[in-house]
Design a protein around this nucleic acid. Structure first.
Lengths: 343, 343
DNA sequence: CTGTTAGCGCGTTCAC
DNA sequence: GTGAACGCGCTAACAG
């Protein structure tokens, strides 16, 4: 049962009275090798349960078959979905995913990059932290000849391929959906102005208003700093204090929407009849909360799959050119929080 | 900036006119080497940004500094918390975590194990699937001299160290808390009878009842198959149909508790005044749902930290004996769903 | 068709 | 105090 030392090519070569290289080639069914030799070696290998020493193989080929994956937060529905997709896809090609998190701190992100670099991943997938405005630590990978792909939270100026969700379209369709429900005074609780995704959603929101002749009003806009439930609650209260409160709110994230819902419940305002709500990200909580929350799904799993697939393609074929930007479409998931008119 | 080929020991030996072995030893400040030589080499290395080729080092030492981590589900609050802890702790010692998921299928778990084995992780952390009743695929690691630690969902008969949460104590304290609130007819929506964690919680529940002279009644017990929200909802309805419905429910999991809450809301029954609820796991949703849910925290992060720490200790010191079972205490997190009497 | 040779980059005897 | 030499397990170029 427990073999002290694993069987090596050398062992099987010796036992079979052939050379190591013949054994090696036979196992790969190299065309030069005689059919019978191939059979013999393969049989022997199977019988003795030969497993090539991957560490040696990787050393020889100077690669690791490991892909680094850095996310801001691991314990986060969206990112764990992305990771899940990455892992499943990577597995198919025999790659492993090495996960690390930045906690949304630049310092941690840099450390994570260094660690990844040191442990010699073959390539990197990264979603940057909120503090990352400069990507030197990311470019180092490129310098070392290791391909990198950014996803979701990206640094636009970085000359590195990106897989993102079409936040603009998401913001647009969320807003349009509210308009379709007959809402006229649609507020938006936005993210930080310097975060790309947040800006795109805002742009989509504005465009939708514009396309439907609804004037954009600054009083219906709030900017989150930490994207928290508390902010949602507070901003909603501010909206309610307006002389002419909104009849709908599009929130940058489901968590913020949750705060909004809380505030409304506290005031006894009915959702969606008096005020309709749409979130973003389609977290687990969107279906759990009551009323269930209409949200924009970002296809996290798919994003993980796509990013990994492109990275591996590049890894296996140096000439493959990763498209500069790949935009995944969002999907509007309609639930109770926004549907004003039934039937 | 971009060095075509990385600097190797050989390069620096040649440039400095010394031998490779001297260079190697100097970098490690080997006592045999002259101080000045050490300085010279270190300076040179620092100046030229020498980074040892980890793949070669690992090959030489026949290890990877990678630790496999297999969980049933990646997109799951508890497990992502564990992963988060593992990664953070592993990083401290220069180890990487290689994550994989079984989707609660035995077949997938076996494949994941094979993959881990093939990619030569140095050791394995595993939380088994619901279908795993036999651990041959896990024992293979031991046979190969790779230490394994089970965590959370474990196979008890497997002679492999375990890090678990004290489910018995958790079940006990959840139940006792309800008793303390004055509840007399406490129901329990349990998990499958063949899942260890579920049984322990049940045992704790029974013990608490017994310690407080409350008779155990089979009519107040239901067993989940899939541990879903729907089951919680359905079972709660069944409870309500009883001639003498319970005044409290202890649920195997927060998700089930969510279903219970839904059922109660539908019937217009007030929580916690008419029926108090306690969940288990302390997911994010426990604080989000309304009323907020009292739950049992399992210290997932800590579990990841502890498991990794012990594995690494074993890895670095073959003589280290991992304790057979390490039980983490749970923590009762009291929220609105269970507190009957305020002040 | 097969064997010989030559490394990959590093660590580790064993001599000097 | 230092260097030469060997080998980890595997692949690949070159001979025959």
């Amino acid at each position: 049962m427990s073999e002290r030392r694993k069987l090596t090519l050398k062992d099987i070569a010796k036992d079979l009275g052939i050379s190591v290289s013949t054994a090696s080639r036979a196992l790969k069914a190299h065309p030069d090798i005689a059919q019978e030799t191939i059979q013999m070696v393969k049989d022997y290998a199977a019988k003795h349960n030969y497993v090539p020493n991957i560490i040696a193989v990787n050393f020889r080929k100077s690669r690791t078959k490991n892909i680094g994956l850095i996310v801001p937060e691991l314990v986060h529905h969206f990112f764990s979905t992305v990771i899940s997709g990455s892992i499943d896809e990577a597995k198919k090609s025999g790659y492993n995913i090495l996960v690390s998190q930045s906690n949304d701190f630049l310092a941690d992100e840099i450390v994570a990059c260094k660690t990844m670099m040191a442990s010699s991943v073959d390539g990197l997938l990264i979603s940057i932290s909120n503090e990352t405005y400069d990507g030197d630590h990311i470019l180092e990978f490129i310098d070392e000849g290791k391909p990198v792909i950014q996803f979701d939270k990206i640094l636009e100026k970085l000359p590195v391929p990106k897989v993102i969700v079409d936040d603009f379209e998401g913001g647009y369709s969320a807003t349009k959906h509210l308009i379709d429900q007959g809402c006229k005074r649609i507020a938006h609780i936005a993210g930080r102005k310097d975060v790309l995704n947040a800006c795109e959603r805002m742009k989509g929101y504005k465009k939708a208003l514009n396309d439907h002749q609804i004037p954009f009003k600054e009083e219906y806009i709030r900017y989150c700093e930490s994207i928290s439930e508390e902010e949602g609650e507070q901003f909603m209260e501010e909206f309610l204090a307006l002389p002419n409160p909104p009849d709908a709110v599009f929130c940058i994230t489901d968590l913020v929407a949750l705060g909004v819902i809380k505030a409304l419940k506290n005031k006894g305002i009915s959702i969606p009849d008096q005020i309709a709500i749409v979130g973003f990200s389609n977290w687990k909580l969107a279906e759990i909360v009551s009323p269930s929350l209409t949200s924009i799904d970002q296809h996290g799993y798919q994003m993980g799959v796509v990013a990994v697939r492109m990275l591996i393609q590049k890894l296996e074929d140096k000439n493959f050119e990763i498209p500069d930007t790949l935009e995944l479409k969002t999907r509007l998931v309609i639930r109770d929080s926004s549907v004003k008119v039934k039937a």
